[in-house]
């Protein structure tokens, strides 16, 4: 569904991505693991058109989308949930959801506000609360719900459990699994291996802007050397 081919990207003058190749198939949940600063966020932003792709291709459903504007990429069915949530603080829960709304697609799960409230019961109780007056966990739920309003084919989740309390991490894991059951394709970036292990089928490990490992989650769990080398201290 999504394929990155030899993607290079810069942040200012810093060379962040030095040739990333990865693929996500329909219905999969794939995790991008790596330490802080490894290039996970930049990889997702490059796919979303929020960071310019210097060289390389980003292929989505057979078309090269590198260089397209972010709103065009959103409209062909890639949803993006940023690391820092970026809730519109002055907009209510309902309004935040409205911003994300797009027409339904035949080949992707269709979401309505009511269905999303079923998935995130907390949000249903605070329809008219401004986004700026919600807790971090609630904002994270809203950020995901807002992206789902666009009925995406593929969702990019950037460190969805960063800074969240353990209980909410579990809830988030259940949520991501529920999304997968709906038929949604998910590419997430994570530092939290325990969380990744619960939700992902396959993993890529990125370090210093390059891929160091690629394989199933089970293979990664079996490879203690790789985990220690790239992820632990």
């Amino acid at each position: 569904m999504l394929r990155l081919e030899a993607v290079h990207a810069y942040y200012g003058r810093a060379h962040i991505l030095a040739g990333i190749d990865l693929a996500v198939e329909r219905g999969e949940a794939v995790v991008l693991l790596g330490r802080n600063g490894a290039g996970k966020t930049t990889t997702l932003k490059a796919a979303m058109g929020l960071v310019p792709v210097a060289t390389g291709r980003v292929v989505f459903l057979g078309a090269d989308i590198a260089g397209r504007a972010a709103h065009e990429i959103a409209r062909i069915g890639i949803g993006y949930v940023p690391e820092d949530r970026r809730i519109f603080a002055g907009l209510t829960v309902m309004e935040n959801l409205a911003v994300g709304r797009q027409p339904p697609r035949r080949d992707a799960p269709t979401w309505t506000v009511e269905r999303l409230f079923g998935l995130f019961p907390n949000l249903a109780a605070m329809r008219d609360r401004p986004g700026g007056r919600m807790s971090g966990g609630e904002q994270q739920m809203l950020s995901i719900a807002r992206t789902l309003m666009g009925n995406p084919r593929l969702v990019l989740l950037d460190e969805p459990v960063e800074g969240l309390a353990p209980a909410i991490v579990e809830e988030m894991a259940r949520t991501v699994l529920a999304l997968k059951r709906e038929g949604l394709t998910v590419l997430l970036s994570e530092q939290n291996l325990a969380f990744a292990r619960l939700v992902a089928d396959r993993a890529y490990v990125i370090e210093k802007g390059q891929l160091r490992f690629s394989g199933t989650m089970a293979a990664l769990m079996a490879d203690a050397a790789a985990r220690t080398r790239y992820l632990s201290i």
């Binding site: 693991l33 530092q191 939290n192 291996l193 325990a194 969380f195 292990r197 619960l198 769990m221 203690a224 985990r227 220690t228 790239y230 992820l231 632990s232 201290i233």
Partner: peptide, 12 residues
């Protein structure tokens, strides 16, 4: 804290 170390990966 630094997940990826064996203890937590196994606990997860």
């Amino acid at each position: 804290v630094y997940l990826g170390s064996d203890a937590v990966a196994e606990a997860g």
